[in-house]
């Protein structure tokens, strides 16, 4: 049988993504004012955070900004044990780490983000969490390091 060859090839690629007015406004408020802004659909009244310029359900254009709190409720969670490459560092993210879909207070959609907690026994759908911000904000969603359980979270739990 023939020796079977593989041709190896490393590609270094870069991209320059244009964003949009609403992304720029969201990032400006996040970076300069430590505020989170969502957009409200004029038809179904859903508040999107992250903001959307078009409501996926109604196909209506969104322009009404709504301030959303940096606290919220866990709607889904997992603890990731496999080392996934972190696109912001190029390195595998240290495991285990918690992830959640978090409905921020004032929003109707959920934000996909990290949790401070990585013990599944201490996590529940419905638990209350609070954003932990980076000292120096750079203008990315990673300016929120992760979300941590709120003090007295049991008392603050959603009924």
């Amino acid at each position: 049988m023939t020796e079977l060859l593989r041709v190896s090839h490393t590609m270094t690629l870069s991209w320059r993504y244009g964003t949009s007015w609403y992304f720029a406004e969201f990032i400006r408020a996040l970076r300069d004012e430590r505020r989170l802004l969502g957009l409200r659909c004029p038809v179904c009244r859903r508040v999107y955070l992250p903001p959307r310029v078009v409501c996926g359900n109604c196909y209506a254009e969104l322009s009404e900004w709504v301030e959303v709190k940096d606290s919220g409720t866990v709607r889904a969670f997992t603890i990731v044990h496999i080392p996934i490459v972190d696109p912001t560092s190029g390195q595998p993210r240290p495991t285990p780490y918690g992830m959640a879909l978090i409905q921020l207070d004032g929003a109707d959609t959920t934000l996909n983000h990290y949790l401070a907690e990585n013990n599944p026994a201490k996590l529940r759908i419905g638990m209350r969490v609070q954003a932990v911000w980076r000292e120096e904000r750079r203008g990315t969603l990673s300016d929120i390091v992760h979300f941590a359980a709120m003090n007295n979270q049991t008392m603050n739990d959603e009924q």
């Binding site: 490459v85 992830m99 959640a100 996909n112 990315t140 969603l141």
Partner: peptide, 29 residues
């Protein structure tokens, strides 16, 4: 795995945990 991480650069990429991570989130619900 890296290819899977090349998702939407605005909102999704910084918190990408691949197909498994995203599935696990929905499974919890």
């Amino acid at each position: 795995q890296t290819g899977m991480a090349l998702t939407d650069p605005l909102w999704d990429r910084n918190v990408a945990s691949g197909a498994v991570g995203n599935f696990a989130l929905s499974i919890s619900q």
